[in-house]
Design a protein around this nucleic acid. Sequence first.
DNA 1: TGCTGGATTATC
DNA 2: ATAATCCAGCAA
Length: 188
Amino acid sequence: MVKVLKRAFFERPTLEVAPELLGKEIILKQSKKKYKLGIIVEVEAYTHDDPACHAARGKTPRNEVMFGRGGFSYVYFIYGMYYCLNFVTEKADIPGAVLIRALEVCDEDDIRVASGPGKLCNYLKVTKEHNKIDCCNKDSSLIVVDNNYYKDKQFSIIQTNRIGISKAADYPWRWYIKESKAVSKILS
DNA sequence: TGCTGGATTATC
DNA sequence: ATAATCCAGCAA
């Protein structure tokens, strides 16, 4: 039984949603019978009053989806070669999103094939075509479900600083699962 | 219209 | 430490 995360899960304060996404499972449908799965083990939060947020200086064609309802995907292209996957949070007109930074995969030889925001999109084959998908609709090609490997296990969450940004670098808005070997980078 | 730098990653 | 490689956002 697949339990797709509901709109109400995403339409809450970004800082509450972000850590709760840890341990949830992303399912991406690549074709009729082909799926890619991954458990979220690392996230970062970006809010409306956050200088590092793409939506900080108003609505643009790129960040438009962040101003809509929660539960939609926000995918953007960066550094000329990578895509990043986010889930929109908060109710309509309040921009906010959670960047998915790492997934743990079970059916691959390399447990770190999706350990980084660019690598995970490469693994799932996420592109700009996956922007603005309603992930609360069970028929969508991209959904987040509550069934997962960590669900019935004891796991601890580490909260620390975000990675790779210059603005508001001191905000402790990155969370990851301590026990996972697929976390992108452990700061010491 | 032109320029700058980025929510990255692999490699030197 | 730096190259790879595009394009959004802003200045003019």
